[in-house]
Amino acid sequence: MTGNAAVRVVHVASGDLWAGAEVQVYGLVTAQRRAGMDARAVLFNDGTLYRRLRSDGVPVTLLDETRLGAPRLLAALWRSLRRARPAVVHTHRRKEHVLGALAARAAGVPVSLRTVHGADESAPPAAWQFHRRIAAGLDAWCGRRLQKATVAVSGELAGRVAAHSGGRPPRVVENGIDAAAVRAAAAAPVALPGPADAFRVALVGRLVPVKAPERFVAAVAALPVAAAGQPVHGYVIGDGPLTAAVTDVAARAGVADRLHVMGFRDDVPACLRRMDALMVTSEHEGMPTNVLEALVLGVPVIAHAVGGLPAVLGEGRYGVLVRDPDPAAFAAALSTLAAEGGAARRRAVAASGRAAVRYDFARVAAGYARIYSELLREAQPASAATEVREP
Rank of each mutant, 00 (worst) to 15 (best):
V153G: 08
E65A: 14
G342F: 08
Y235E: 03
E121G: 14
G155T: 14
P288T: 00
S154W: 02
V29M: 05
M1R: 14
R93C: 07
V291M: 13
A31L: 07
L313P: 03
A140C: 03
S282G: 09
V280L: 11
L321Q: 13
A103N: 12
Y372M: 08
A294Y: 09
R363L: 07
R171C: 06
D139W: 10
H131T: 02
M37K: 01
A351S: 14
A385M: 09
D267P: 01
Q32L: 15
Y372G: 09
V249Y: 00
V249I: 06
G69N: 07
G3D: 14
R345F: 04
G27R: 11
R33K: 04
F216H: 10
A253C: 12
H164F: 10
A106D: 02
L102H: 02
G36R: 02
D239Q: 05
A369P: 00
D326P: 06
R34N: 09
A5S: 13
A75I: 06
R79V: 11
P189F: 12
L313W: 09
G263M: 05
L309K: 04
A256P: 04
A196Y: 00
N290A: 15
V161S: 11
E285M: 13
A158D: 09
E65R: 15
R160W: 12
A6I: 03
A253I: 01
L207G: 04
G3E: 05
V111L: 06
A75S: 14
D120H: 08
E378I: 00
K95H: 07
I371M: 00
L53I: 06
G316D: 09
R347T: 08
V261Q: 06
Y50N: 04
I302R: 05
L102Q: 05
A219C: 03
G319R: 02
D239C: 01
D266W: 00
L113R: 05
A351H: 15
A135L: 13
A41H: 03
A186G: 01
A355N: 07
G108V: 05
Y26A: 11
A181W: 04
D324L: 09
R363Q: 13
G263T: 07
R265Y: 05
D56C: 12
A187Y: 06
A256I: 03
L321S: 08
A104M: 07
R273V: 10
A333P: 12
A5G: 08
R132M: 07
D360M: 06
G194L: 10
N290R: 00
G159I: 05
M37F: 00
R347F: 09
G166F: 15
G308H: 07
R206H: 13
L207E: 01
A305L: 07
L321F: 10
L102A: 15
V42I: 15
S55D: 14
A350T: 14
S122N: 05
T61Q: 15
A179E: 09
E283R: 14
A212P: 00
R54G: 08
A5Y: 00
G308I: 09
L77K: 02
L102Y: 02
L113C: 05
A107S: 14
W128M: 12
L74M: 03
T247E: 15
P241C: 04
E293P: 03
F361P: 03
E390I: 15
A362P: 08
